[in-house]
Design a protein around this nucleic acid. Structure first.
Lengths: 125, 125
DNA sequence: CCGAGATACTTTGCCTGTCAATGCATTGAC
DNA sequence: GTCAATGCATTGACAGGCAAAGTATCTCGG
């Protein structure tokens, strides 16, 4: 169902995706994993953030001070490690969005996407 | 001058960028490298496709049958290896644009970019 | 009570693309 | 003769993604 997107095309965005999710409120690995899957599915796309990838990204983000974590206090079920975005993380997310926007524009130019390739010629000497 | 874009954010797109350039006509490494730089610069961005990265990508593309190459016949100056996009490469480029478009949409959702986060709540149980 | 399946987190080792560094060869300007 | 620009190519290291495997708890059906 839907296009299978290679996560390699999103390489380097894993941490920012997590931050984007945590901006909506504290969450934990399994939940974020499912959220990402369902968002992708709503876009008609078959994408999943692999667990190994995700948990390693949590580690990095915490080292960088972008998130903090705490063990949940549910009486039943497996224990959950909740993550919370910090102000450092917020800043980083803002920045990531700006960078993403510029990257997007650039790649569109470089790929010569239809929407920007209207003009007949644009070869500079 | 402009934002410095980490090429790592474009990881995996190198080959497609090259194909996009070759669609404009046969070219060679040094030229493509300069074209990319000047396109980025026109976007107000400081991005460069590193030579090592580029030449390795040429290699891969040729192995995949997406491009062919031939030595230029200029009487003077250093020899140039020209590359030409094949129909396989054309197909791949078409595909890449579609994939890119989907990836773009998805990442915008996942990062929670301003333009798509209007609705108040969208948390599913 | 037992097994299957969902929930939930973690580690190991491999693969692949990027890139700094380095090297080679030619040409033209100073 | 030397320096910068052109032009191509290889090497080794690094980092992120991921398959695979492991641990542990809970729930539900039989």
């Amino acid at each position: 169902m839907g296009t299978v997107l290679s996560a390699d095309l999103l390489r380097g965005y894993t941490e920012d995706i997590i931050l984007g999710r945590l901006e909506q409120g504290d969450s934990y690995g399994y939940q974020i994993n499912k959220d990402v899957k369902s968002i992708a599915s709503a876009c008609g796309q078959d994408f999943e953030m692999k667990e190994a990838t995700m948990y390693l990204a949590f580690r990095r983000l915490e080292e960088q001070g972008c998130i903090t974590s705490y063990w949940g206090s549910e009486g039943s079920g497996a224990r959950r490690r909740y993550y919370s975005i910090t102000s450092v993380g917020q800043g980083r997310l803002q920045e990531a969005r700006v960078t993403w926007d510029k990257t997007r524009q650039l790649l569109e130019q470089l790929l010569g996407s239809k929407n920007t390739a209207e003009s007949g010629e644009e070869r500079e000497s």
